[in-house]
Design a protein around this nucleic acid. Structure first.
Length: 169
DNA sequence: ATAAAGGCCACCC
DNA sequence: GGGTGGCCTTTAT
């Protein structure tokens, strides 16, 4: 990590998205985690491991509100990303990919000025802490394949499909 | 300090 | 279709 969390309290909780139940965490600085976990306990454990000095308070209402803004009103709340410089620039590049379109891993590498760092990019994309909002699902293989997805290929497919159907947002 | 493993890509059979 | 070598970062020895 090269940049660190500066907050000491955060809330986390669970809410339903068009792609299933998500776990989310946010501080006053913004959302810093959005995952699709298999069980609730692992979310808290994982958050506490990544942010050992932070106190987490559960608040599902707050997360449901966030989900409503994101998926119903298409209003994106602030994000707060923590990672290495390389990861941060990859995640930044991902946020520039337009809604409903896709790019290749190589495209991302090129846009960052490291055309040959494809594998490093793929790895950083896979480490995306904030599903959907940092649109890692919009990165696919150049050869036509879809690549992989940390939270299940099926979910990546339905995200891309959902965006195509909701372009009017 | 070194090694191994990536949500990859291009090139060659 | 398949195998191989190269690319750069992260993580684990």
């Amino acid at each position: 990590m090269t940049n660190f969390a500066t907050f000491s309290d955060a809330c986390y909780g669970f809410a339903f998205t068009p792609f299933g139940k998500c776990g989310m965490a946010k501080s006053e600085q913004g959302i810093f985690s959005l995952t699709f976990p298999s069980d609730e306990e692992s979310v808290r454990v994982e958050l506490q491991r990544k942010f050992p000095n932070v106190k987490f308070y559960r608040n599902d209402d707050e997360m449901e509100k966030m989900v409503y803004f994101i998926f119903q009103k298409n209003e994106y709340p602030a994000l707060a990303l923590y990672g290495t410089n390389f990861q941060l620039s990859v995640w930044e590049a991902l946020q520039k990919i337009p809604f409903g379109s896709t790019v290749s891993y190589e495209d991302v590498a090129k846009s960052m000025g490291f055309p040959k760092a494809v594998r490093a990019v793929a790895h950083a994309v896979a480490c995306n802490p904030v599903a959907f909002l940092v649109p890692c699902h919009r990165v696919v293989r150049k050869n036509g394949g879809l690549g992989g997805f940390r939270w299940g290929m099926e979910r990546k497919i339905s995200m891309l499909k959902w965006e195509k159907e909701n372009l009017h947002l």
